[in-house]
Design a protein around this nucleic acid. Structure first.
Lengths: 122, 122
DNA sequence: CAGTATCCTTTACGATACTG
DNA sequence: CAGTATCGTAAAGGATACTG
């Protein structure tokens, strides 16, 4: 992303994090790994309903950022397992906080949205 | 977004929230409002380095979701103030948790990334 | 000042086909 | 099984010009 202007420090940092895991898939992959500990490629694919391409790209980025660990076994056919690193685990906790908020307040958002739409109905 | 397959409840909720405020600007706007309480349109624009178009769209969505309040005064030229609602304030707290994580661990991500790149340097 | 309208570019993502 | 490569589409977002 580009320059964020006069934002405070924390703002820039959040921005950096969001630039990295701000896409929907990264977070969903981490949530999946958080609950299941270790998962294989196609297991994740089926679980999330993600395409091979996006899962491949997403996992590579998460690995690059030190959030997930990739372990390949030299079997035929190949076996590859993914799991959260300690860093990834710690971030997943943070996501969990947001998840709890979501579960608690999503209905309120829906209500607000419905009312807004009702008010602005042409 | 589309079907998330066999994700647990929390996963779907998180996904819903991310679909709403998952873009970079929504979160940055909320952070700005969190710190400053009340801000006017152009004040936010200058503060964030966002384009008029994106700020306008972002604020409307946040208002629609019940996260920010918009108050227009019938002055000439017009004065419009934005602030977080209680719901928005509560969500901003959640963002704050992520912000703290970011401040604490961003350097680790950078290290991991640098090392990954070094290992995979052709 | 606080927007809206239009255009255009970039990015994200899916679909599909192929491979060690 | 676990990917990569290629292609096409749709959405996000910036630049610019205009308005009550």
């Amino acid at each position: 992303m580009k320059d964020v202007g006069h934002c405070p420090l924390q703002c820039e940092k959040i921005n950096s994090v969001l630039s990295r895991i701000g896409d929907r898939w990264s977070i969903l992959v981490m949530i999946a790994l958080k609950g299941r500990q270790v998962m294989r490629f196609n297991e994740l694919k089926r679980h999330l309903g993600i395409t091979q391409r996006m899962l491949s790209l997403t996992l590579r980025e998460l690995e690059r950022d030190g959030l997930v660990n990739r372990t390949a076994y030299a079997t035929v056919p190949p076996t590859v397992e993914y799991e959260l690193t300690d860093l990834g685990q710690s971030f997943a906790e943070t996501i969990g906080v947001m998840g709890e908020w979501a579960v608690e307040h999503l209905a309120e958002i829906d209500r607000a949205r419905a009312e807004y739409d009702r008010r602005n109905a042409a």
